[in-house]
């Protein structure tokens, strides 16, 4: 057993965890934060994606004890609206009036999900991915060393760590592109604050 403090969606949460407990189980089974989902529990589906230290990671393969002091953001806390600390995670994107982050709004508008189970992971992954893109990070389909455009192939490759069995992929890609265009991250290095 270990005592740790994890900042979850802007709220410090103190808890005692078994050293075996993953961040995913700590969130879902100890803290009642069930936005990150358990789809495979082995890093093979992406449904458990959260931001930790601003980066998208898999909470199912992260031991909770390693997260003492970490700042963890789930889909439930993406929009500044939802956060008691008013912080704007993930690139300072503002949330719009209905309390949804632009990526979330785009997912709803594009019908980028069906059953909804992989969706919080998709949304968080998209937020993390857009930040990576804005930093100029390449992907497996990026040609050469010049900054790529956020075209279909780039989005699809960068989002391939999030499986969707309902197969909403053809709506997820335009949703991510729409959110990127609206928040000015469609081009690398544009408009993303740390």
């Amino acid at each position: 057993m270990s005592e740790i403090t994890v900042h979850v969606d802007g709220t410090p949460r103190r808890l005692t965890v078994d050293t075996r407990t993953t961040l995913l189980d700590a969130l879902r089974e100890r803290l009642g934060v069930t936005s990150p989902k358990k789809g495979c529990d082995h890093g093979q589906c992406g449904a458990c994606t959260v931001l930790s230290g601003g980066r998208r990671v898999l909470s199912c393969l992260t031991l909770a004890v390693t997260q003492d002091g970490a700042r963890v953001v789930t889909a439930e806390g993406l929009a500044a609206h939802d956060r008691p600390d008013g912080e704007r995670p993930a690139g300072g994107q503002r949330s719009d009036d209905d309390g949804l982050h632009p990526v979330q709004r785009a997912f709803v508008d594009c019908d980028a999900f069906q059953c909804g189970y992989c969706t919080p992971g998709q949304v968080v992954s998209a937020v993390g991915m857009l930040d990576e893109f804005a930093r100029g990070w390449p992907s497996a389909v990026t040609e050469g060393t010049r900054p790529p455009r956020l075209d279909r192939a780039e989005v699809a490759e960068r989002m391939s760590g999030n499986l969707c069995r309902c197969a909403a992929y053809v709506n997820i890609v335009p949703a991510v592109q729409r959110a990127a265009a609206e928040s000015g991250t469609a081009a690398p290095g544009a408009g993303v604050a740390e």
Binding site: T49, R55, L61, G128
Partner: peptide, 11 residues
């Protein structure tokens, strides 16, 4: 970049 996924490469 051809390995795993964006999330796993971050870890």
């Amino acid at each position: 970049l051809s390995g795993a996924s964006g999330q796993l490469r971050n870890m």
